[in-house]
Simulated scan of single mutants.
Amino acid sequence: MPNPDATCPAHAPKDHPKLPTPKIGVLLANLGTPDGTDYWSMRRYLNEFLSDQRVIDYPKWKWQPLLQLIILSKRPFTSGAAYKSIWNEELDESPLATITKAQVAKVAEAMEALHGAEVVVDYCMRYGNPSTESKVRALVEQGCEKILFFPLYPQYAGATTATANDQFFRALMKEKWQPASRTVPPYFAQESYIDALAASVENAYAAMEEKPDILVCSYHGVPKRYLMEGDPYHCQCQKTTRLLKERLGWGDDAITTTFQSRFGPEEWLKPYTVEEVARLAESGKKKIAVIAPAFSADCIETLEEINEEIRESFEEAGGESFTYIPCLNDDDAHIAALVEAIQTNLAGWI
């Protein structure tokens, strides 16, 4: 794709290829989304996701036959139905895609106000489209000699941040002129992020007639084995809850940490959200609120799993009031926190 601002370098011979004006790229990355809710769209997406050894680290000879012959023959139907229940029919895309686009538009607007055309902001998905490779290529074609890669996960996990970085590095391997690169580290302890999270809770509570008995911070789970092997995710989730509690000025009994989305036979990080909300209801906490601090945007795990499956578990155990507090999404305070993280990590480049 020709670049309209490309020019031949000064003092270069006439046949030298034209080069675009040097820029800095900021590439935001989220998990991904299927292209549709039909069987084959879901199968392609799930195959890419579940074949990632950062996500499922069993030996390929053991895992792939099970995945290809059993799991991918059935799961696309159930996952497709779950996605269909939350699908953005107007734009024919998942809510994650819609929200990520809105986030990127606001981040791009803020960066343009700060740096003009010198910084180019775009986004990619680890699984599905737009792919990381295609977006790295597009940034290079626009003249980005430096790229800041920003996985949109507040807490680090091998199955999220690391695999997103892996894909970014793989894309760089294919570039003839490889741009300088940096990755944004976890930002769960960044004060502006905690402030945005706390404000979302305060606003939600202010709109309720009766305050919840407890706030459940539900994080996406990982096998407990990953923690024992050195993954810091569990510790960073616990610290996120603690920082949020301190910012809100609450006591220990007003907030708790749980983990959702368990998959497979292994023991995962506990307590499991779906079980813990039932226990809370049975113990007399009939009014709860749930927030998902590990997700930067609402997606299948929040809109379908929390708002349907986990809500149902709570209500069946005698719970009376269940409130889901949405992710920060494209809230202005969240965008400001993301821009702050970007600015910090662009230091020395701009």
Rank of each mutant, 00 (worst) to 15 (best):
M1E: 10
P2Y: 11
C8V: 14
A10D: 13
K14P: 07
H16W: 14
K18W: 05
L19Q: 15
P22F: 00
K23M: 06
G25D: 12
L27V: 08
N30A: 13
L31N: 03
T33M: 05
R44F: 06
L46H: 11
Q53S: 11
Q53C: 02
V55S: 00
Y58A: 15
L67R: 01
L67K: 02
L69C: 07
I70K: 08
I71E: 05
I71G: 05
S73Y: 12
S73L: 14
R75C: 08
P76I: 10
A82R: 13
K84D: 11
D92M: 14
D92Y: 10
A97W: 03
I99D: 05
K101F: 07
A102E: 13
V104F: 08
A105Y: 06
V107G: 00
V107I: 15
A108M: 01
L114I: 08
G116Q: 05
E118Q: 14
E118V: 02
V120H: 07
Y123C: 10
Y127T: 05
N129T: 09
S134N: 11
C144D: 13
L148N: 04
P151V: 01
Y153A: 01
Y153I: 02
P154G: 09
G158E: 06
G158L: 04
G158I: 00
A159E: 10
A164C: 13
Q167Y: 10
F168E: 00
R170E: 11
K174W: 09
K174S: 12
Q178L: 07
P186T: 02
E191A: 13
S192A: 14
D195F: 07
S200I: 12
Y205T: 01
M208R: 13
K211Q: 13
P212T: 05
D213Y: 12
Y219S: 02
Y219I: 06
K224Y: 15
L227D: 05
E229M: 15
Y233S: 00
Q236F: 07
T241L: 09
L243T: 02
L243Q: 10
L244H: 01
K245W: 06
E246T: 09
W250G: 00
A254H: 13
Q260C: 06
P265L: 01
E267L: 11
E267F: 06
W268G: 04
K270A: 12
P271N: 02
E276N: 09
E276F: 15
A281D: 02
G284N: 08
K285C: 03
A289K: 11
A292T: 15
F295A: 09
D298F: 08
I300L: 15
E301Q: 06
L303Q: 06
L303W: 02
F314H: 01
E315C: 10
E315F: 04
E316Y: 01
E320P: 05
E320I: 04
D331S: 12
D332Q: 10
A337E: 05
L338P: 10
V339W: 04
V339M: 01
G348R: 07
